[in-house]
Design a protein around this nucleic acid. Structure first.
Lengths: 170, 170
DNA sequence: CCAAACTGCTTGCATTTTGCAATTGGTTGA
DNA sequence: TCAACCAATTGCAAAATGCAAGCAGTTTGG
């Protein structure tokens, strides 16, 4: 997979990599949702990605160096997708995108609590999160206690909002 | 123009607004290139946007509240497009996108010097630049001397690189 | 005063991408 | 053995994109 190379402008080239409706959604689900398998990405997709589009984008992202694909030793047909340093460093972009969307678009409270925490945490939290991802996906660095991870905190906050909404609705 | 609303996730909604190959390119040319007219955007487009796509995206961006359109008093057929606060606050996203692209993609030196300066300037430079845009496009705040603007500095740096390349080539 | 150039689009048409549902060939666990 | 699960693939309709040409009106230069 080569880029179009319409121009050597960094913004243009970035758009050629993930300027479509699905690539960043997949990466978001891997980064924040911890998904590693095709089925996880397909069945838990909040936006309902189709299997052919998912297959196509995963292939493309692997070819572009944003993901790597490996066999899952526990299942001959399962593939494990991993983030690369290239995709891990999208975290600041995701954070800015989330912060902007929270201000200007009709986001729902449950789905935007993570973006809020990421925004409030600022660059140092982003770094911590990226370090976690490096450990999980690249095997670099040292592990943290499972409940001390940034992702666990984001997930806990999300669950708290969902629980509060459920109580209110009942 | 309404969003698809595939989900209320801020990243998803942001992608529904500018997750295509052209919207951010147009906004980049308005923000960094100072373009305000259809023909400017069409004829100086580095990536060669087609006129029907440009017309469609401008219409869409106006409907989404990212741009406003007004008559140009100097020419009955000219329209002036202005950024809104919604699009001015894309500057941090553009900066992060540029920074990421500079690291990971085959950018050219001339077209990435602006991204480099924006990255080095950090959030305080982004704020200055957004204030300039607010003055230019919204008439808010106070003007700066024309040669003291962030855009003028970015442009001067770009020109310096182009000149250096030209000398080297000759 | 008139022709040429310019204004923001629009149209027609071919190509490409997307979305959806069903299906494939194989693997796994009970 | 057999149902459930695996990562895709296929066929097809619909939508988006890209390209070239055209449009009616406006301004400019001679």
């Amino acid at each position: 997979m080569t880029l179009d190379r319409r121009s050597g402008c960094p913004i243009n080239l970035s758009l050629e990599v993930f300027g479509d409706r699905w690539s960043l959604i997949i990466l978001r689900d891997m980064i924040f949702g911890g998904r590693r398998h095709f089925r996880e990405l397909l069945n838990h997709s909040m936006e309902g990605i189709a299997s052919n589009i998912l297959a196509d984008r995963l292939k493309r992202l692997v070819e572009l160096g944003m993901l790597t694909k490996a066999d899952d030793p526990t299942h001959k047909q399962k593939a494990i997708y991993s983030l690369t340093e290239m995709s891990i460093t999208l975290v600041p972009i995701m954070a800015q995108l989330g912060a902007w969307g929270r201000v200007w678009l009709p986001v729902t409270e449950d789905l935007s609590i993570r973006a809020k925490l990421l925004e409030e945490g600022g660059p140092s939290l982003w770094q911590d999160f990226m370090d976690e991802l490096r450990f999980e996906h690249l095997g670099i660095g040292t592990p943290k206690p499972a409940d001390a991870t940034v992702r666990a905190k984001l997930q806990a906050a999300y669950q708290a909002v969902v629980d509060a909404q459920t109580r209110k609705a009942s």
